[in-house]
Simulated scan of single mutants.
Amino acid sequence: MNAILKTAAKTFTPKSSGDLARLGVFVALAGLILFGALRYDNFLSPFNILSFLRYNSMFALIALGMAFVIMTGGIDLSVGAVAAMSSVVAALLSPYHWFAGLSGGLAAGLVVGLINGFIVTKMRIQPFIATLATMLAAYGTGLLLADNQSVSVSYDTGFTIIGQDDFLGFPIPAWIAIVAYIVGWIVLERRALGRHILAIGDGEATASLMGLKVDRTLLAVYAASGFLAGLAGVILASQFGAGQPTEGVGWELFAIASVVVGGTLLTGGSGSVGATLGGALLLGIVFNILNFENGLGVISLSAYWQSVIRGSFLLVVVILQAGLVKKQDKASGM
């Protein structure tokens, strides 16, 4: 009996600070859901749940792409701008066919992702600088294409089905996010590419000495991040009925916060797809609760406060994460 208990303890005890953080995000998520259910009458209503999932699917998608980038030790600051630009491209092409809008938005995101990967791998520019430059370029391109205004989508070609309709009683954007996360989990946990990504995060030089194709892997990771941001942009245009060239501001912070809240180190080399989804849902529920509090009249926070809260939340998480890394280094004798 004692042997069984010891084995169970080893199995369910977090092995590292990263494992503890990943467990913590789900505990916090459950706690917030319980708090909301007890405090607000309609918090668990089908309307609120489905609206929450429909809207936050966009953030979940960009967080997934960001997670893989951060696992390599990089960063992608362009995801919000790419989503905004892709929403404009999708809206402009939507009158021709729903598939034209979808494929155009995806292609726009993929192109920027490939550019990011090329700059990082071939030109050897730091990811922070490279993606900052493409962020500015993407915002500018979106504004130029849209003539500095929202671009209405076509309601005649079925394009709005992507963002506004349901399948089996569940929002289509949420289905898209679920499929993306399943694929992401398979890549990270069941494919050699996932191990290569983590190895690069531990050290590019070491990964190269091991014979891994570092540049090809990094190019694929940044391309995937751009592609997922483009998909978020398509959903944005379809869901709100217009391409939004000024949207996406602060989305990169939401994505980064979702990743680090899920226990992924900003230094790379570790990460979890499931915990990233948990982090995205956790942040989404925080803002959902704030909206309910606004409705009760207890507090009165404008939409601008979301950026303040998001940035503050990210800062606190990074500080806590840095403390955990220091403790881990001391424990390992480094």
Rank of each mutant, 00 (worst) to 15 (best):
T264N: 09
G279H: 13
L277W: 02
Q239L: 14
L265G: 13
F240P: 00
L265Y: 13
I256C: 01
L290S: 05
A242M: 13
A280H: 06
V261K: 00
L290C: 03
E252M: 10
T264A: 07
V261G: 00
N288D: 04
I289Y: 05
N294A: 05
P245E: 11
A237V: 06
A257R: 02
G284V: 03
G295R: 08
L236W: 00
F254W: 15
P245A: 07
V261I: 15
E252L: 10
V259G: 08
L281G: 04
L266W: 06
L265H: 10
I256E: 03
N291E: 14
F240D: 00
S272K: 04
E252G: 08
G250W: 12
A275T: 05
N288A: 14
V286T: 02
G269P: 09
N288T: 13
G279A: 13
W251K: 13
G279N: 11
E247L: 10
S272D: 08
S270P: 00
L281T: 05
V234F: 00
I235K: 02
G233V: 08
S258F: 11
V273Q: 02
L282N: 09
L236D: 06
G263A: 03
V273R: 03
F287G: 04
E293N: 01
G271K: 10
G250H: 08
A257P: 04
A257W: 01
E252S: 07
L277H: 07
E247P: 00
L265I: 01
G262W: 02
A275S: 15
A280P: 03
P245Q: 11
L283K: 12
A237Q: 05
Q244S: 10
N294F: 04
F254C: 00
N291K: 07
A275Y: 01
W251S: 10
L283H: 08
V234P: 06
L283D: 12
A255Q: 12
A237N: 08
G233L: 12
G233S: 14
G278K: 12
G263L: 06
Q244T: 07
I289E: 06
T246F: 15
G241C: 02
A255C: 13
E252T: 05
V260L: 03
A255D: 13
L266Y: 08
V259H: 10
A257G: 06
L253I: 15
V273F: 01
T246I: 14
G241V: 00
L266N: 09
G284K: 05
T267G: 14
L282P: 14
A257M: 08
G248T: 07
S238G: 07
I256S: 04
Q244N: 13
S270R: 15
E247H: 14
N291P: 00
L281H: 03
V260Q: 08
V259K: 07
T264M: 07
G243W: 07
G268K: 10
A275H: 05
G279T: 11
N294T: 05
G284F: 01
G295A: 07
L266M: 15
G278M: 10
G279D: 11
G284A: 05
L281I: 09
V260H: 08
G248M: 10
T246W: 08
G233Y: 10
L265R: 15
Q239T: 12
V234E: 01
G279R: 11
Q239Y: 09
F292H: 14
